[in-house]
C-alpha cells in the first residue's frame, strides 16, 4: 500500500506486480479513499447511496401504482366495488387478503437487491480489514 501512496514522493520504487496482488492493492486504495473522504471516495459512497435510494423509490413506486391508485380507481369506477372474484367483492379481496402477500413480495425483492448492491460495493472497496462491527457513532 505504501508504494501506491508514494505518488508525490521522490522516486517511485520499482515493485513486482502480479495480478492478484494488484487487485488487493487497488481495493485497499478505495477503502482508504473512502475513509479520507477523497473525491474518489465521495464518488463511491454517492454511488452506493444513489443505488439504494433508486431501489427503494422504485419499489415504493410499485406499491403506489398497485395499492395507492385503488381509492381513485374505486372513486372513478364505482362498479369495481360490485365485481365478485372468487366469491368476494373485489375491494375486499384486494385489501383484505392480497395486499399482504404483495407487501411481502416487495419487501423480499428489496432485501435481495439491497444486499446485492452492498455486495458490489464491498467488492469494489476490498476485503474486510479489522471489522469493527458494532462501533458506536463517531
Amino acid at each position: 500500500m505504501d508504494s501506491l501512496e508514494a505518488d508525490g514522493g521522490p522516486a517511485p520504487r520499482r515493485v513486482r506486480v502480479d495480478l492478484a496482488g494488484r487487485a488487493v492493492r487497488r481495493a485497499s486504495y478505495s477503502r482508504q479513499e473512502l475513509e479520507e473522504q477523497t473525491q474518489v471516495g465521495e464518488v463511491l459512497i454517492r454511488g452506493l447511496v444513489r443505488a439504494q435510494l433508486a431501489l427503494a423509490l422504485s419499489l415504493a413506486g410499485v406499491v403506489i401504482l398497485l395499492l395507492g391508485t385503488l381509492p381513485i380507481a374505486f372513486a372513478l369506477f364505482p362498479a369495481l366495488g360490485d365485481v365478485y372474484v372468487l366469491g368476494l367483492r373485489l375491494p375486499w379481496l384486494l385489501l383484505g387478503i392480497l395486499a399482504y402477500p404483495l407487501l411481502y413480495v416487495v419487501g423480499w425483492l428489496h432485501v435481495r437487491q439491497a444486499e446485492r448492491i452492498e455486495d458490489d460495493f464491498s467488492k469494489a472497496v476490498g476485503p474486510t480489514q479489522d471489522p469493527e462491527t458494532n462501533g458506536p457513532w463517531q
Binding site: 477503502r31 473512502l34 475513509e35 473522504q37 471516495g41 465521495e42 459512497i45 454517492r46 452506493l48 447511496v49 439504494q52 452492498e118 460495493f121 464491498s122 472497496v125 474486510t128 480489514q129 479489522d130 471489522p131 469493527e132 462491527t133 458494532n134 462501533g135 457513532w137
Partner: peptide
C-alpha cells in the same frame, strides 16, 4: 460524507466507524 458512509456501507467493511 463520513456520516453517509456510516449509514449506508455494510458494517463488515468497518468504514466510517
Amino acid at each position: 460524507g463520513r456520516t453517509m458512509l456510516l449509514l449506508h456501507a455494510p458494517e463488515s467493511l468497518g468504514l466510517g466507524r
